[in-house]
């Protein structure tokens, strides 16, 4: 076991886990931040997407112990009131079916807009292609990302 500090959603959090523990399981099992989802565990679906210094990463394959110097943002910390432009657009477009993939989709979309505030439709498709939605909400995701870019 190893003790180390993480900076999550602007707060310092001390954790005590095996060094190889992925951030995903530290968030869910140790810190009670269950908004970040598990689905594949091998960087294929994007359900576990969080931000490392504003960029989208797969938390399921990233050992938490490698992130001690980084700012981590999860869906719970994307905005205080659930009113990040991407969240607002997701509300407006009513994107979710089962909803399980949506935290990851939102985090990925927010990271895209951090890098590129006015993405083209093709750029949206490229960026969002790394997240699977088993319910098939792709049309609405696409529409919502485009709307969020305008809201920003």
């Amino acid at each position: 076991m190893a003790k180390f500090n993480l900076k999550i959603n602007g707060q310092k959090r001390e954790v005590d886990v095996e060094e190889d523990t992925p951030l995903l399981w530290v968030l869910r099992d140790q810190l009670g931040l269950v908004g970040t989802k598990y689905s594949c565990g091998i960087a294929q679906c994007g359900a576990c997407t969080v931000h490392k210094n504003g960029e989208a990463i797969f938390s399921c394959i990233t050992p938490a112990s490698s992130l001690t110097e980084d700012d981590i943002t999860t869906i719970e910390g994307l905005s205080e009131e659930g009113d990040h432009p991407v969240q607002k657009a997701w509300q407006e477009v009513d994107v979710a079916q089962c909803g399980y993939c949506q935290a990851g989709q939102i985090m990925n979309a927010a990271a895209l807009l951090n890098k590129n505030s006015a993405p083209s439709m093709d750029e949206i498709d490229d960026a969002m292609n790394r997240n699977i939605c088993r319910c098939g909400t792709y049309h609405k995701i696409r529409e919502a990302v485009a709307m969020a870019a305008k809201l920003k």
Binding site: G35, I75, Q87, I106
Partner: peptide
């Protein structure tokens, strides 16, 4: 459930 889903 939108609020709950979109804020984790």
């Amino acid at each position: 459930d939108n609020d709950a889903i979109f804020t984790g």
